[in-house]
């Protein structure tokens, strides 16, 4: 069985994150790059399954700038078998549709039975990509799973639905995305780190994948970007026994209660 895990590098949410006000793109210089937290859990799901089953091969796939390579190496150290990096200048500022097309093309090229992704990254937070990739690949999706069981034929899991919890099952091939309810990722170990240096890491250009970024299809474009004025502190009081009353007066005066 071949599992492809979608890996994303994001600006560290503990630092300041910025958009470049001219291009509207993430300012990659402004903050440190880290493995998206949820990606770690997706990798963990694949690696722990590989430990429990025979002949499971894990390919790690990322689309991103040069720097994403070190993030891929880090995930390799957690236990993947190969890494695949789509890097092409024409992808700068790629919208969701193009990104999904590129990732699906790469997944096809690598070959897959199962694709595992995080449900939404900490920077994009769109949460659309996994299902878009599934539609591109023409396979079932089971997204935003709070639990995940993998078998040779199918995946099962639970996710939140309207008014309750939905149990779902998808026959392979399929695309799943997982939430932060999944187990914490392992830390890369000494052996894993040493082995990761020797594992294959392939790079692909758009031409390699047969994708034309300039094709005349509808794209989402950024019209404007502006920095929101920072929220500032308002009134701050120390409770001297009457703060509850004062808050009630404040809320009533503002007509919010």
């Amino acid at each position: 069985m071949k599992i492809v895990v979608l890996v994303k590098e994001v600006p560290d949410s503990y630092g300041e994150r910025k958009l470049n006000l001219t291009t509207g793109l993430a300012d990659r210089e402004a903050s440190e790059k880290v493995l998206d937290e949820i990606t770690g859990r997706a990798v963990e799901a694949a690696v722990s399954y590989a430990e429990s089953a025979d002949e499971v091969e894990i390919a790690l796939l990322s689309m991103g700038p040069e720097s994403a390579e070190s993030t891929l190496r880090k995930t390799l150290a957690m236990g993947g078998d190969s890494a695949h990096h789509v890097v092409d200048e024409a992808l700068l500022g790629a919208d969701l549709t193009l990104t999904a097309q590129v990732l699906a093309a790469a997944v096809q090229k690598i070959g897959f039975d199962l694709v595992i992704a995080g449900d939404a990254s900490s920077d994009g937070a769109g949460g659309l990509l996994p299902a878009m990739v599934a539609e591109q690949l023409g396979v079932a999706h089971a997204t935003s799973l709070d639990s995940l069981q993998i078998s040779a034929e199918a995946v099962t899991g639970e996710r939140a639905g309207y008014g309750g919890t939905v149990s779902v099952q998808a026959q392979l091939p399929a695309v799943v995305s997982v939430t932060e309810r999944l187990p914490d990722p392992r830390f890369p170990g000494f052996k894993g780190i040493m082995q990761a240096k020797k594992k294959p890491l392939e790079t692909y250009s758009l031409a390699d994948l047969g994708v034309d970024a300039s094709a005349d299809v509808p794209r989402s474009i950024m019209l404007s970007v502006s920095q929101t004025p920072a929220r500032t502190a308002g009134e701050k009081i120390t409770d001297e026994g009457d703060a509850g009353k004062r808050l009630a007066e404040y809320l009533i005066e503002k007509k919010v209660v």
Binding site: A100, G126, G127, A131, M132, T143, P218, S220
Partner: peptide, 22 residues
């Protein structure tokens, strides 16, 4: 939400349309 995102994602690819998330 989860279901809405799945619908938007599949529809966008199927109709080859642009999407605006969140």
């Amino acid at each position: 939400d989860i279901d809405g995102r799945d619908i938007a994602a599949r529809l966008a690819v199927r109709t080859s349309s642009a999407v605006a998330a969140d």
